[in-house]
Design a protein around this nucleic acid. Structure first.
Lengths: 164, 164
DNA sequence: CGTCTATATGTGCGCGGGGCATAGACAGCA
DNA sequence: TGCTGTCTATGCCCCGCGCACATATAGACG
């Protein structure tokens, strides 16, 4: 009901266009991702993701490297500049969230986090979906990531192609 | 922290591109809106909103009427077809929300709604902002809309140009 | 009433993003 | 070696949007 307005309250102040920020944040989580995985994560087609990577590479934010074993795959990594940009994106996002929830008391935040965690674990569909969910997570603050925990409980590890 | 993931969990399954759906839902709330107000609501420029209205009018979803007192302003109204489309958008959105929160118990939902209401009232900045927040609300389910209540407490009524 | 300003809508033009179809490079297998 | 599937990259095009401008109207003032 009303709860989705909190969605809009924060998403309407989103830091940037979306795909670019998502890509940076996602690569901050999972360095060495392939373009294919990144495309799934940011919700774009392969072609669109290639252009996105082109732009970000032109801006010096990410770089393509050769994959160790597979000659086709390009492993994507953040450059130091890209890491800074990614941090800024996540920081601004955190600021919006914190600002939006500033009226809640600490114990209420705890309740909210608990509910959110259970919702996430319940809604998690498969491994590809997990990339989408986590694309704008704060990696440092996500040491006990519920998504990772849920994946672990299901016997799935990230980085493998165990799609469901 | 984690709470913003609930954002993504629902927004990643959004019904449509965004502006179009927002416009329909917003016009379902506030028939007779001007293009300017609609532009603020959906977060587009005037020009972009004009094109959006053009498209929706071409599809027979909304119609432009003459304003009663102001000859410049065009009052936008949903056609019956547009009303159906708007209902579908809101229904699919509700479905996503309900599905996402299905794991929560009723009392938890109540707590969540209470927190969301306070967050919204706290984050409400001005009247224009209220249009953005409410653009995808469920009008029927929002009989005691916290935004309206907050606006009322501040002595502001919708439909007037009392920008802050 | 004439004029000037502010407001609201509509339009020409260009840019950027993204998808579809295709080409090139490479892994795995018979 | 040749075939097939996969991954990446590119040509082409459409769509959506913003900027600047034009048009129409309301309101204020002399």
């Amino acid at each position: 009901m009303i709860s989705d307005d909190i969605v809009r309250a924060s998403s309407s102040r989103a830091p940037e266009a979306g795909p670019a920020a998502s890509a940076l944040a996602l690569l901050a989580h999972q360095p060495g991702l392939s373009i294919r995985m990144l495309a799934v994560g940011v919700g774009l087609s392969h072609a669109g993701t290639v252009r996105l990577v082109d732009r970000l590479a032109t801006e010096g934010l990410i770089e393509r490297r050769e994959h160790s074993s597979d000659g086709r795959t390009r492993a994507l990594y953040l450059t130091p500049t890209g890491k800074i940009a990614s941090d800024e994106v996540l920081a601004s996002r955190d600021e919006v969230i914190a600002e939006g929830l500033s009226i809640l008391k600490p114990d209420e935040l705890k309740i909210l986090c608990d509910m959110a965690e259970r919702v996430l674990r319940d809604r998690l569909e498969n491994l590809e979906h997990s990339y989408r969910i986590c694309r704008l997570c704060c990696y440092e603050g996500c040491t006990n990531c519920p998504i990772d925990a849920e994946l672990h409980e299901r016997g799935v590890e990230r980085g493998k192609s165990g799609d469901g």
